[in-house]
């Protein structure tokens, strides 16, 4: 642990500011709380929001897991885990069930989470309406008035053009029947895991200086039409390593001829299944 820096890098005043903002976020599920995002020793867009939240949450007894694309071994996940091992000296793990705090980019673990776990999402763009309305002052007003017709225009247009809703990730959700919220760029496959999750879900967007929360057991509804209900991705394949047929699969190109194989994106889940099969 590097002693030139405060525990978990941020000074205690900054952590207090973050915790207050987090409490506000939990009190107003799905509402984007502006916060005094700090410059972190990680580029903006690489998880600066997530690591500030994690830094504010971590205590010496916490066990941290970091995943990117579902995997513990992708370079950015390794780098963030190394960062906290260095500045906080906390225990780290690759096992979902062992972790008390899980920082993630783009996935929710396949293993069901518990009440005593917190999932921290890295969020590049917290505003689900941004691509439809670039002005921040206007999108904040739309949220204040719960005026979400615009989002439905987009979904309508998808069905009119493609026959179904053509949003495959960062699929918008309505949290607790009130705030339209970005679940971060997780595949829509993961959206059902947000609904009534026993674990607290926190979202940090460092560059955009916003954080928000989905408290445990909160209703999270993926937007849809009555006659075009929300559906998740399905594969014709099973994981070629562990045989799972209910997990999100990565497609891997294995040779110059373009041969493909499908494997679990959640490396811990896949590894555990294989270990059980071997035993």
């Amino acid at each position: 642990m590097t002693s030139n820096y405060n525990f978990a890098f941020l000074d205690e005043n900054t952590k207090r500011m973050l915790r207050r903002a987090l409490l506000k976020a939990v009190a107003i599920p799905g509402y984007q709380v502006p916060f005094g995002s700090r410059e972190m020793p990680l580029p903006y867009g690489w998880g600066t929001g997530g690591i500030q939240l994690t830094a504010a949450l971590l205590g010496p007894d916490d066990v941290l897991k970091v995943i990117d694309q579902g995997a513990d071994d992708t370079t950015n996940a390794v780098n963030i885990r190394r960062f906290f091992a260095r500045v906080a000296g906390v225990a780290t793990t690759e096992r979902t069930i062992e972790a008390s705090v899980i920082q993630t980019r783009h996935r929710i673990p396949e293993t069901p989470l518990r009440e005593d776990q917190i999932l921290v999402f890295q969020v590049p763009e917290p505003e689900p309406l941004r691509t439809l309305e670039p002005r921040e002052a206007e999108t904040r007003t739309l949220h204040a008035l719960a005026d979400y017709g615009l989002m439905h225009v987009k979904l309508y247009e998808d069905i009119a053009q493609y026959g179904h809703i053509a949003t495959s990730y960062d699929y918008p959700v309505l949290v607790d029947g009130r705030f339209l919220t970005s679940p971060s760029p997780i595949p829509k496959f993961d959206n059902p895991k947000l609904d009534h999750s026993p674990a607290l879900m926190l979202f940090g967007a460092g560059r955009e200086k916003r954080l928000y929360a989905i408290p445990p057991y909160t209703r999270v509804e993926s937007l849809a039409f009555e006659d075009h209900p929300f559906e998740i991705q399905r594969w014709e394949h099973q994981c070629e390593l562990c045989g799972a047929d209910e997990s999100y699969l990565d497609e891997v190109v294995v040779d110059d001829l373009g041969s493909r194989m499908f494997v679990c994106s959640d490396t811990d889940y896949c590894g555990q299944r294989r270990a059980e099969q071997a035993a």
């Binding site: 580029p43 867009g45 690489w46 694309q69 990730y169 760029p185 997780i186 595949p187 497609e251």
Partner: peptide
Amino acid sequence: GFVQHLKLPHYVDFQA
């Protein structure tokens, strides 16, 4: 940071 974050893996979204 944000322009260069495109270097990071986007396997999951790309798969979707």
